[in-house]
């Protein structure tokens, strides 16, 4: 009996495993794929994503050297430049992702598929993170070589942990933004425009946030990169610890808290978005 055989073979995977971890990861990886593979196909990224950030970094380096700022600042700037890539990715790509998916008509297909939307969103985040990692590494390597930066890594284990915590918190924030953007659509565009420059300033991309007033620095810490950068600098540069804002364990604690807050908020808002989309019938509409 052909039909019976077909019923079993076609629905076995989807129906039985669609709550399982394996299926969840399968979805995450599939959605990360276009980012990781597809995005490298347009070669122009090398110019826009590596050369331009390096140019900004160079400008700061020349200024710092001209005014005789401590030489550590040069290393700080290179690391800040590299980490900026992640911020840009979250602000411009990750946050508008669901909006674009809606415009292209993918959002309806994602909602209709038997996977969880959270897996789709995580896939987008993972893909963006991996693709950006390439760019950040290139900026770090080139910057360190051009400006001859000295490194003295205290603990690679801690460095990795801090970096991962910062990434999870940052992309958790990006996932939250993605649903927020979809709900606010055009207004959100202006918000990210507004957010870009102040964040450069307050999250200390190009100088240590210790130079701020304590409460200003504390407020800036809501952006996960702020503490991430500060902790990484403490762990990587010879005099980093002296210029650090809080102690590394405290910074890691706060970052972990941010991870939980952002991921939970992202999950809740995503569920709300899906419910609203289905109730109002607007959000899956690409032509309207």
């Amino acid at each position: 009996m052909k039909s019976e055989q077909w019923t079993v073979d076609s629905n076995q995977w989807a129906v039985e495993k669609n709550s399982g971890l394996k299926f969840f990861l399968q979805t995450v990886i599939a959605r990360a794929y276009p980012r990781i593979i597809g995005q490298q196909r347009e070669k122009s990224w090398m110019f826009f994503d590596i050369f331009l950030p390096l140019l900004a970094v160079s400008a700061y380096v020349f200024v710092y050297r001209a005014i005789g700022a401590p030489e550590e600042y040069v290393g700080f700037v290179v690391m800040g430049g590299a980490m900026t890539a992640f911020w840009m990715n979250v602000l411009w790509s990750m946050s508008s992702q669901l909006y674009w998916e809606k415009e292209m008509g993918n959002l309806a297909l994602y909602i209709m598929a038997p996977n969880s939307m959270m897996a789709i969103l995580l896939g987008m985040a993972l893909g963006g993170m991996v693709a950006t990692l390439l760019r950040a590494l290139a900026i770090t390597l080139l910057g360190s070589w051009i400006f001859d930066i000295p490194y003295a890594v205290v603990s690679f284990g801690q460095l990795f942990l801090v970096f991962m915590l910062a990434m999870v918190a940052l992309y958790g924030m990006g996932m939250l933004f993605a649903s927020l953007f979809l709900l606010l659509s055009r207004e959100a565009w202006h918000l990210s425009n507004l957010a870009q420059e102040p964040v450069y300033l307050f999250s200390g991309f190009y100088f240590p946030i210790k130079s701020f007033n304590f409460w200003v620095a504390m407020s800036a810490s809501i952006i996960p990169l702020t503490l991430g950068l500060d902790a990484m600098r403490q762990l990587v540069f010879p005099s980093g610890a002296a210029l650090g804002f809080l102690s590394i364990p405290v910074e890691m604690g706060i970052l972990s808290g941010l991870c939980v807050v952002f991921l939970t908020a992202a999950k809740l808002l995503l569920a709300y978005m899906e419910k609203l989309a289905i109730r109002e019938g607007r959000l899956t509409e690409s032509r309207r």
Partner: peptide, 9 residues
């Protein structure tokens, strides 16, 4: 392939 993965195939 990407879409097939969302169905667990």
């Amino acid at each position: 392939w990407m879409f097939s993965q969302f169905y667990g195939i």
